[in-house]
């Protein structure tokens, strides 16, 4: 039996929909990227608490990013984006100073070459390091020339740009309608009483369906043990009334843990404040229960389009189309049977 909005659309009580009759309120993360300083304390705390294996320590050529993407072995991932535009409302005075361009175009070039040769197009990041055969390359640092330096070193007035550095700590979204959970054929992935989505490691048989069911590229199968892994929102800590390790470790409160309803209110207030202060590019991502996954349990305040951080701009849980797909498959099956029956009737001897 399918209850209303069980597959798609807003869902008030996701834990009850999954069969938890009595349960604590739904919890989640509000990750406010506007205060993130890129310290990666969340990445480290997560690895320590959850004993997540390492995924390579090299810088990737993506600014200061050295994990690249969420994956089986990266449950918090800090993204770094260098842009030659000013942070809204900020008067850095940079436009008046002689500065060099951000490193981004040259980085993209170097990274693109590496991704092209990667077995999974670079989506293995967060699970395995990329195989890189070239020696390390110097991509430069975001830097200023000294006042008074002339154009001879290419950093003269004509090369002046603004600059902002976006950082975002990404994590599993703990979707209201979770693509990973819906497709899991073993029941290894389940909805907890807190409304979060967790893999039971003793059940998972590594079929890999969840990897392709997730519209955010979060969960992955580990080549180390053949099973799927992702953020558990520190299910063990929640049971003991503790907040997740990443939120605990975050020194700027960029990662805020709490009851989802309360976090949504707080996030809306924060956006209003930022807009008042002239940061009009601040926007929330994932907090809307009317979006393609029914809203996420972990949502974000971003300062640019989601795709700039590597997030899908309009993700949809594939389950939305399950009824239509089965209808099409049913018609195709009927056609198949009709063709078979017709073949025998047509070739009667």
């Amino acid at each position: 039996m399918i209850r209303e909005n069980s597959l798609y659309g807003p869902l008030d009580d996701v834990a009850a929909d999954a069969g938890h009759l009595e349960h604590p309120p739904r919890v989640g993360f509000f990750t406010d990227t506007s205060v993130c300083i890129g310290c990666k304390a969340c990445e480290v705390a997560c690895k320590e608490w959850n004993l997540v294996p390492d995924d390579g320590f090299d810088l990737l050529g993506m600014s200061y990013d050295n994990s690249g993407m969420l994956g089986a072995n990266t449950w918090r991932h800090v993204a770094f984006v260098e842009q030659d535009i000013p942070l809204g409302g900020q008067r850095t005075g940079i436009a008046e100073l002689p500065t060099g361009p951000s490193g981004t175009p040259v980085m993209t070039e170097v990274v693109a070459a590496r991704l092209r040769h990667a077995e999974r197009g670079g989506s293995e990041l967060g699970t395995n390091p990329l195989e890189v055969h070239e020696p390390p390359q110097d991509l430069g640092m975001p830097s200023f020339s000294r006042p008074g330096d002339d154009g001879a070193d290419g950093h003269g007035a004509e090369g002046r740009t603004d600059f902002r550095w976006l950082m975002e700590s990404d994590v599993c979204k703990h979707c209201t309608h979770a693509g990973c959970l819906d497709v899991c054929p073993t029941g290894a992935l389940f909805r907890t009483e807190f409304g979060t989505v967790v893999v039971q490691q003793d059940i998972c048989n590594g079929c890999g369906y969840c990897v392709s069911g997730c519209p955010y590229g979060v969960i992955d199968r580990s080549p180390l043990d053949g099973r799927a892994h992702k953020c558990t929102l520190c299910y063990d800590r929640l049971h003991d009334g503790l907040e997740p390790a990443c939120a605990k470790a975050c020194p700027t409160d960029s990662i805020q843990f709490g009851e989802l309803d309360e976090l949504r209110e707080r996030a809306n207030r924060r956006v209003a404040t930022l807009h008042d202060r002239g940061v009009t590019e601040a926007r929330l991502y994932g907090e809307d229960p009317d979006d393609g996954v029914g809203g996420t349990g972990a949502f974000f305040l971003l300062l640019d389009e989601p795709e700039v951080y590597g997030l899908p701009p309009d993700p949809v849980v594939p389950t939305r189309d399950a009824p239509a797909m089965w209808r099409a498959a049913g018609i195709a099956a009927a056609a198949f049977l009709t063709a078979a029956v017709g073949s025998f009737l047509g070739s009667r001897r």
Partner: peptide
């Protein structure tokens, strides 16, 4: 990274979209 020029010349113009260093958004199937 077509936009970055220099590396190679493309006949087809680059699609106008933004991404995180050209990294995939979703995981390639395992």
């Amino acid at each position: 990274g077509r936009r970055a020029g220099a590396v190679q010349r493309e006949v087809v113009p680059a699609a106008d979209f933004r991404s995180y260093y050209g990294r995939p958004v979703i995981k390639a199937p395992v």
